[in-house]
Nucleic acid binder design. Structure first.
Lengths: 110, 110
DNA sequence: CGAAGTTACGTCCTACGTAACGATT
DNA sequence: AATCGTTACGTAGGACGTAACTTCG
């Protein structure tokens, strides 16, 4: 254990899924408000991190490989969970503010 | 939509869970191979991002708040999913290498 | 007085944008 | 010739470490 898997972040997974949805790196970059070079670099880094060939050039266009398609649902599931986590945080925050409205100066209530 | 929720990354959630597990910022920092200042800063940033008071000082020690305890399972679930994603990637990579062993020069097989 | 946390400062690494090149249709 | 992708370069933001201060037990 040398420490080679340095934790892939959510951002990188979002990039990969964006390419899958958009159908090309160019379109995905526009959707993400990024430039092609930045996006392509992150994708390559993701492939190196995971040790998986996720994308390949087919007819001048970048499309998902076999393993890319296989991995896609896992990436989607992770992003969905991340989204749910953010939603949960927002609900807790709203809940907290509502309680503060009821007991402005008394945190020991109930 | 001004763009205030700039995507909280997995790393930050790991820090929060580490504090919950270790029982203090100091212990968590040691477990994460980090220093207290770095860890504390990330925790504060997380609270600001989420708009949630996750931690508080009680008796000279930093412990989880009420909402902190409520949010904890969501953070754990997210990290578990992230872990599963990594595992899936590793399995796909192993699978791919096994196939390559069987068909070294022929990717069109089957 | 000791321990834990916070704040302030400086440094390093990562991510991004711009520009130029190559490949494909 | 046009489009997509890649490579090279430079810059900006985020994360971390070190040091000094404050607070609680």
């Amino acid at each position: 254990m040398i420490g080679l898997e340095a934790t892939v972040e959510l951002r990188t997974f979002r990039y990969f899924v964006a390419v899958a949805d958009a159908g090309s790196v160019n379109a995905a970059a526009q959707a993400l408000h990024l430039t092609q070079p930045s996006l392509a670099r992150q994708l390559h880094r993701l492939e190196r991190r995971l040790g998986l060939p996720l994308l390949e050039l087919r007819g001048g266009r970048t499309v998902l490989t076999e393993v890319g398609h296989q991995f896609l649902p896992y990436a989607r599931a992770l992003l969905a969970t991340a989204d749910a986590t953010q939603v949960a945080a927002r609900l807790l925050a709203a809940n907290l503010r509502a309680e503060e409205q009821l007991t402005p100066e008394d945190e020991t209530a109930a």
